[in-house]
Design a protein around this nucleic acid. Structure first.
Lengths: 206, 206
DNA sequence: CAATAAATTAACCAAAAGGTTAAACCAAAT
DNA sequence: ATTTGGTTTAACCTTTTGGTTAATTTATTG
């Protein structure tokens, strides 16, 4: 657990996360970040030198945390059932902790796809063992053993992450379609995790 | 099929779709839209009065088309199996047709959730029968009959749309994680549809 | 305490943005 | 041929933006 200091730098970061989430990189305003952090605008450039760099720092920090958690969950899973039971929870709880980050990642993914690719690439380079190879081998092995119905790791990922990640961003659309407000409380989160786990276990396990 | 005229207005729309998709509303530049359309910047404001209005027109047009297709697919489905077999194809093919729109919708969903809610609300008001009621009743009826494992319409939607919609936006992330380029060609699209259909049929049907 | 380094601010700046305007252009109708 | 109406343009304007600067306050340290 990182220390939650209240230095000017920390307050800028917190305010910036919210600003980038609400307005995206281009919509984000340095003046609003400053106001939200209760500091002078010049401080942003004093500590982070540019808006772009501030953005990069935030994205990289978040991804480091997320990837770490996913790797932990993968390391513990010697069976696809175990993996499918834990992964949705990791993603959903991570993005619930601060849903702002979910929004920022989506923004980045849409506007600047190479950026996130590079960050993930760099983070993977530093780790001693190669998680990308491990995942592909896991899927391959499990499929051969007859445990997995889906054989392509690409689709395995595309079937797990979106239903987890999207439940925060997509909700307004669902609300409109069903003409009903949906409260994102602990109960809803638990139900969502259960539903996704069910979906991918029944949908992809043999 | 709408007529694909080549009037200045049409060219502005086409150029704007690409610009909004690549940069989001705030990142989009009127000057670039003009250059892309090969017209003078003033024409944008002559035909659409403001950047915001141009954006609104694009979003509303797209949604009208999408909702129409989804409703057609719903009307034909008297059984959940049928619905689960057709819906992913509708979404995936629709967003493949121009993936720009997928990006724009995501942008809008993240930055301005109320906007899309309102558009959907307005479109639904005009239709004689209420699709939102129909869908909820369908799910309820099917669940009671023992055809559906998932009883909550919210989760049914959240299990169908994200794996379909996200396969375009999320791909760069998957590529980074697996350290492999993925070509989005007809073959991939077919595979993706099959995978999603499989996932939600096995995952939610009883 | 004095000197130095770090943190903070108000005022400022150039560039770029969305948007306006008034004049020119052009096709069709009279 | 001239009027008329919709198009199209270059030049312009205002506001806002990310970013700078130079001066001031606050903390650190010898």
């Amino acid at each position: 657990m990182k220390k939650q200091k209240n230095t000017a730098k920390q307050r800028i970061l917190r305010s910036a996360v919210k600003e980038f989430a609400d307005h995206g990189f281009w919509g984000a305003r340095a003046s609003r970040i400053a106001k939200g952090a209760g500091i002078n605008k010049a401080m942003i450039f004093y500590y982070f030198s540019s808006k772009e760099n501030l953005y990069r720092v935030i994205i990289e920090d978040t991804f480091k945390d997320l990837i770490e958690e996913v790797q932990k969950s993968m390391a513990k899973s010697d069976h696809p059932e175990k993996l499918f039971e834990t992964l949705p929870e990791v993603y959903i709880r991570f993005f619930r902790k601060d849903e702002f980050m979910a929004k920022i990642i989506i923004h980045d993914l849409v506007q600047n796809p190479d950026h996130i690719s590079n960050i993930i690439g760099q983070l993977f380079e530093k780790t001693p063992y190669k998680p990308q190879k491990i995942f592909q081998e896991m899927v391959h092995k499990w499929h051969k053993k007859g445990l997995l119905a889906e054989s392509d790791p690409v689709h395995v990922i595309l079937n797990i992450i979106p239903p987890s990640l999207f439940c925060f961003i997509g909700l307004p659309m669902v609300e409109a379609v069903l003409e009903r407000k949906i409260k994102v409380d602990d109960k809803f989160i638990d139900e969502r995790i259960k539903s996704v786990v069910n979906l991918i276990k029944r949908g992809m396990l043999k």
